[in-house]
Write a protein that binds this DNA or RNA. Structure first.
Lengths: 235, 235
DNA sequence: GTTATTTTATGCTTTCAAACATAAAATTAA
DNA sequence: TTAATTTTATGTTTGAAAGCATAAAATAAC
């Protein structure tokens, strides 16, 4: 990665973030501009840890981030996969709690932070904006309870198939129309799908043998979307 | 149950609901009063079904309600247990989606509904109230992801112990300081803890043999809170 | 009060996924 | 480069929980 990537164009990052808030008044935008900071994270670096106190609203401007909770036997559970441009860690901010998951960069990433009090001040005077955020948090709560059910009730094949579809829908496909545009380790794939690494590897090999996917290291090509969806649906 | 229970005192129910909104202006309270309806549900009756469209903000004024999603193999997953005075179904309302779970009365219950547009109109003009709701939905999202991890990673004993603690903390104890103040069937207990009914029965018997709890039909007495918490924590 | 039906209780069997054990391949470091 | 470490790949064993069967108990229906 070239050195120049370290130079972040704050203004363009800021404009990207503002794109997520449709009807911001000029004075609100001004407050945000004055209270934003940017940070660069290399692949594998921790953006924040479970238990840390939120200092502001964190926005992922570039890169990919996984959010995971440490589980019972030290086994991690990935609870969310973030893509740009989008927020991370807002749940804890709005709940006035410490972070309930750790955020780690999966690729070199750019993150900017809008200072907590500045942002909450905007919310307190903008019911429409707050209602929009409420809507998206409520939507996410729906995803979460859905996820609880599928992770607990589907069998290994169904869970892995669902994860692959989820990754495809979240990050999209490469230009070939087949390769999932994110390159996770088998361990991450396992932690996303609630299974051991061995089982992720085994089940993935199984899918490849059946011709549903094609494997090339961490690159996963979906050859038969329909069949993959069937595997996911059957559980 | 006596016939007179069917006569609901709407005004007192309304005052109870308003208690959940601390700083409501008189005119807002007026709008709510004009847009509220009450309904009585007998034990076992369905308040709304997964897939139904919310007509308003539903408040449980009296009784107990379980919220469950139909799982993969017809196995239900209880996603929430509601107690009075509190709301149910608000997630779908705020997400502008259909209900993602079914609400069923566990006891004879009184429910009141604040008409959707009236309530959303109040929210659109009251950022403070909206922010309060955002906070509680964000808190619940935290519970939900926590739950995903424990339901997937803890073993049967840990999951059941956690459920018993959850029920104790949600509904409290009878005057004896031991008996959990809710009487679920073994099947409900299983659906809450992500296990089969047989395993709920088996594991419950195990706890009783070990002297952690005492069973008397559906009545569950917690004899050793500390040990129950240890079982839950160890997973 | 008697009959059905549902719920609870236990034993036995099966199965799916975890745990363990290597080993090969791919990265990273020296 | 070579060595060290991590990741990926498979085979084997073990174990926890589901599935099934049956019966007793409790509850509801008649």
């Amino acid at each position: 990665m070239s050195r120049s990537s370290y130079n972040i164009d704050i203004e363009s990052v800021f404009e990207g973030v503002c794109g997520l808030f449709p009807n911001l008044k000029p004075e609100e935008k001004d407050i945000m501009r004055k209270n934003i900071t940017c940070q660069y994270f290399r692949k594998g670096e921790i953006i924040y840890k479970e238990g840390d106190t939120p200092q502001g609203l964190v926005c992922l401007s570039k890169g990919k981030v996984k959010l995971y909770k440490e589980g019972v036997g030290g086994r991690d559970q990935i609870v969310r996969m973030a893509k740009p441009i989008g927020f991370i860690g807002y749940r804890a901010l709005f709940a006035e709690e410490n972070y309930s998951a750790t955020a780690e960069a999966l690729e070199d990433s750019v993150v900017c932070i809008i200072e907590k009090n500045a942002f909450m001040g905007i919310l307190r005077n903008n019911a429409e904006l707050t209602l929009n955020i409420l809507k998206s948090v409520a939507t996410e709560l729906g995803f979460s309870t859905n996820r609880t059910v599928t992770l607990t009730q589907k069998h290994i094949r169904g869970r892995l198939a669902e994860s692959l579809i989820f990754l495809r829908d979240t990050y999209g496909l490469e230009d070939d129309g087949k390769t999932i545009k994110v390159y996770l380790s088998r361990e991450d794939l396992a932690n996303l799908s609630n299974m051991t690494t061995s089982n992720a590897i085994r089940t993935l090999s199984g899918f490849a043998e059946e011709g549903v996917i094609e494997l090339d290291g961490r690159r996963i090509k979906i050859l038969d979307h329909h069949r993959l969806e069937r595997i996911s649906d059957l559980g």
